[in-house]
Design a protein around this nucleic acid. Structure first.
Lengths: 202, 202
DNA sequence: GTCTATATACGGATAGAC
DNA sequence: GTCTATCCGTATATAGAC
């Protein structure tokens, strides 16, 4: 096991996967054509099919690897220290920027769009977001509760609420409006989210 | 102008539009085939094309009319009276149930999925949700502020936050999880949303 | 291993009968 | 106005040369 155990072999595997990702994330599953993918990957169609048995598995691999990549950069520092009133706005700002940076925006759209056709992958996406974002945030809140910086309440619920607020206000609107993501608006939204929580619980 | 001025003429117009809606809302634009639509509408393809010049316009008419239908039932009573602490949970519960009832759930998915291909319709959707949900809610909040039931703050911001919380926690997860929408969970989420707001501002 | 060329089916759209 | 039958481009997938 000196190398990966996944089937990532073949000289052009990454080239193919990246080309497929570009097209699938832009056009969705049904909207993407294998010809476009081959062009984007600069490979022939026959080469594509030497790596993947069909279009569906190509798509699933794109979802899997894109989700994997999405967390290469951490949404926020899980060991954030300092009082809640200072740390929370920083955390929300980091999370907001994380949510608004590609490929997370396109991934979000495509997963929702194809959830009925690829229910397992949609659930994996949902579960991963919970495990990697909501749960760590809840643990931070519990820490503040233990230190009496924040009033006792259900931390998991408020973590979910804050994440939903950011996703709803930022990703949702960015996808609908297409308005080129003004980063300062993300910061404002993050600050308002932290304020609401702090007003309620501190 | 005794009748509609829109081009809703022809005996089978509704039949065609409803059949198209069923397939488009289920499969998205690219995933839907005109053959499926014809079958679902129980009409021949030639008949479809006698009502719509092409598939794209068929899709846009489905979005338009479905969005129209979505507001036939009001999301909540805009003249809700009574103190904020009683009225707000009722309003949030009504809104939560509204969001979780078809065809709103499928419409939400499809609009996001196709926002890049149909940007105007995505913006119309976004604007309509704001005008019909967020803005009325903000006006209610301003009423409570005027009566000193709620502390002074930016009502539009908190209205946006609450709506985003509901959409993010309910629609979002229902679409990803497919888990048959347990209505009592919608009620819990609505109650928690109202609680957060009231804890922060009353 | 990767390509060109092709098999085969299905897509959107239309002609013409009734 | 609505249908049956069909056009024709494009889709996914593969055979066979190199």
């Amino acid at each position: 096991m000196t190398h990966q155990s996944r089937i990532t072999q073949g000289r052009k595997f990454d080239q193919v996967r990246n080309g497929a990702a570009e097209i699938f994330l832009r056009d969705g599953f049904s909207g993407a054509s294998v010809d476009d993918i081959a062009r984007s990957a600069r490979v022939s169609k026959a080469t594509l099919y030497s790596y993947f048995p069909d279009k569906r598995l190509m798509f699933r691999e794109v979802l899997r690897s894109t989700l994997d990549d999405a967390f290469k950069q951490l949404p926020f520092d899980p060991d954030q220290s300092g009082p809640a009133s200072e740390a929370l706005p920083i955390i929300m700002t980091g999370l907001a920027q994380w949510l608004m940076t590609e490929p997370r925006l396109h991934l979000h759209r495509v997963v929702i769009a194809e959830a009925a056709r690829f229910p397992e992958d949609a659930q994996t996406y949902d579960r991963t977001m919970n495990d990697r974002i909501v749960a760590p945030l809840a643990r931070l809140i519990e820490g503040w509760i233990a230190l009496d910086e924040v009033r006792l309440h259900d931390a998991m619920t408020s973590a979910r609420q804050m994440v939903a607020m950011l996703i709803g206000q930022l990703q949702h609107r960015a996808l609908l409006d297409g308005a080129d993501l003004a980063p300062d608006r993300a910061d404002d939204t993050a600050a308002a989210t932290a304020s609401l929580f702090l007003a309620a619980y501190s």
